[in-house]
Structure formats: C-alpha cells, structure tokens
Nucleic acid binder design. Structure first.
Lengths: 192, 192
DNA sequence: GCATTCACCTAAAGACTTTAGGCAAATAGC
DNA sequence: GCTATTTGCCTAAAGTCTTTAGGTGAATGC
C-alpha cells in the first residue's frame, strides 16, 4: 500500500481547510481521515487525540493571523496602523470562518502562552504606540481592542448585523473611527 | 414504572445547569438522560434532536440575560444605565459560564430573530438614549457595545486577561469609562 | 541484503445520536 | 368505575465518532 504521507502539519493544514468548508465544530478525525483516504486510527500516530488536533488548528490559525498582522503593521502608524491591524482580523474571519472559529476556541493558559497569543498582544501594543497611553491605560486599551475585534467578528459571523441597515461594512469603518477618536482622547481617570 | 415528568422546559433548564457545571460543549443528550435517570431515547419526544436541545438552551440563556438586563435598566439613565447594563452581561457570564457560552452559539437568523435577540438590541438602544446619537450612528454604537460585551466575556473566560496585571476588574471599569466618554463624544464623521 | 524503524492497517470496545415500535400509566368519555 | 385513547418512557438496533492495541509491509540504515 502506498503511504499517504501524513504528518501532524499536513493534518493541521487540512483540518484548517476543512474547518473553513464545513465549520470548525464539524472537524472530526474521521472526516479528516476520509480526506486523506486513510483509516482513522492512522491519525493517532501524528496527533494525540481529537482535542489535540483542534488545539493545533487553533494555534495554526493564531499564527497565521499574527503573520498577517505583522505584515499589515509594517511601515504604518497611528490610525493607519489601527485600521490595517483591525482589518486583518476582520478579513481573516470573513475569509477563513472556520479557522477564525478555531482561533476563538478556549485554550488552557500554558498552551495559549506558548502560541502566538503574546505576539498578538505585543502587536496591539505596537499599534497603541501611535497614541499617547501610559500604563496601565495601555493594557486596558489592548484588552478593549481585543474584545472589539474578537466580538465583532463573532457577531458578524453569527449573522447579528446582516439583513439590516446600515450594512456591516459601514459600521466597521465607523467603529474604527470611534476607536481612533477614543484612543486619541482616552479618559484620564475613572469618573464615578 | 414511575414517570420522570420530562418536559422540554425541564430538559432545557437542566441542560443549562449542566452547561454551567461541565461546559456547554459537553452537554449531551446522554448525560442529560442520566441526570433524569431516564433512557436517552425518551428525550427525543420532547426535543427534536441534540442540536435542537442546544439551541433551546441558547435561547433560554438569552432570555434570562434579557430579563436581567431589563431589570438593571429600570430607573437608570446615562452612564449609570450603561454600567448596569454592561455588568449584567459580564456578571452573567461569570456566574453562568455554560449558559453564556450557549448564548454565544451561532443561531440561524430566523431562530435568533424569534428569540430574545431583538430585545437585547432594543435595550442597548435604550441605553444610548442617554447619549446624543442620531441614526445611523446609534446603530453603529449598538453594534460596538454588543461586540465589546460579547468579546470581553469571551476573552475573559478564555483566560486572556488572567494572571497578569492590571486585573480584569479594573480593566472592565476603565473600559466602561472609556465607552461612556466615547458615546458622549462620538466622532461625527468619518476621518480618512 | 538484512535489520530496524516507521507508516498505515485491522480489530475491538466504548460513547453518543437517532429512529422504530411496544407496553403501561395517565386521562377522558360514558 | 370501566373502557378507550393518548402519552410517556422503554427496548432494540443501526450508524457515527473516538481511542487503544497489536500487526504487516514499505522505507531507511548498516
């Protein structure tokens, strides 16, 4: 019998594509084996188990997004950087819904820290360099941006904004305008 | 044999509790049947299938959150309303992680529209009454708030902010300060 | 050319889902 | 209060997915 040439990496990439096609939830070792025309048990030499496979797909997606974000950030600053950075997340989620869902999967802290998580945080901080925020406000802002990007993609995907005016594209532009304004004018202290 | 007294409603409530205990993903017809000391097949007279069960749990959670939000909003306006409203979502997610995860589950548009979805949007609009936003800016703001609440709970749950200073509580307070400031000072037009 | 390693296989057991059909408890009609 | 119907839960069975154990042939190393 000819060998199929399975590797963890090939499984993960195929799993990511499968996720985009049929949804991350539906990615299953069985389906993946079918794609490779291989018996399911064969996957278990390359991947610990089904959970492990999904985790790897999530890490792969996070890495891919971080690469794109790094690219987008190069040579930009201020609002230009903010918009380019934000668009990476939104575009990725629209282009690769399954991978984006994977990236939103809860990872245990150790795994997340070993993956591209810190890189994302670092790049968000880089975006904020264009604004004038000292710690701890910068961290708050990093978390706000993360929440917005994450939440917006998630709601957009769930169809929250579709079929109603104004269209999602316009909202996205205006939200970035608003975030830019907010970052330029970050409230100094807590107002009770 | 004594009857267990199953109803769709009791199944959904038990499913919601189960979700909080073991995670929404892990909620399964089999496990639920075990809790009721009943055979799995018996559930299928009350619930179409496993997907239907999960959808109902999601709708239940959304309803519960909407009820709490309505309560929190009564008699409040301005930032007071914003904070109370936002806290409902965050507190609910911390108190009921499984249900909150259920509420984040993608629903098909028709199902979402028939559930508490519109109520949430309506209440968010009510919060914005305390600020001075005309359409379509109000809609953009509704979507921004939804994204932030949704995204923050999700990241907080995933452990994104834990184990690092400043603590999540402080960030939450400052994010609400920032959103309040932003809504009071919403940028009028797109700045290219 | 032989031994080892590695890639994929078969086999099997356990869990979850879903459908079909049956019996007994609850309810309704008289 | 008895019968008839409905309803609630059951058994049975087939299908899918996961995971482990152990086997066989293909690739690699000496």
């Amino acid at each position: 019998m000819a060998r199929a040439g399975l590797t963890a990496d090939r499984l993960v990439r195929a799993g990511a594509e499968l996720a985009d096609e049929i949804g991350f939830e539906q990615v299953t070792a069985s389906e993946l084996a079918r794609r490779f025309d291989v018996k399911v048990a064969s996957l278990y030499s390359h991947v610990r188990n089904s959970q492990d496979l999904k985790t790897r797909i999530a890490l792969f997606a996070l890495e891919e997004m971080a690469d794109r974000a790094a690219d987008a950030l190069a040579g930009r600053a201020g609002k230009d950087a903010l918009v380019a950075f934000a668009d990476v997340y939104r575009d990725y989620a629209r282009e690769h819904p399954g991978r984006a869902a994977a990236a939103r999967m809860p990872l245990d802290p150790a795994t997340a820290a070993a993956g591209a998580g810190p890189r994302h945080a670092q790049m968000t901080r880089a975006v904020l360099r264009g604004y004038d925020l000292a710690e701890p406000e910068a961290t708050h802002a990093v978390r706000l941006l993360g929440s917005v990007f994450h939440g917006y993609s998630s709601l957009e995907r769930a169809g929250g904004f579709s079929h109603s005016a104004p269209d999602s594209e316009e909202t996205w532009i205006r939200i970035l305008d608003a975030l830019d304004a907010l970052l330029r004018n970050w409230p100094t202290a807590h107002t009770p």
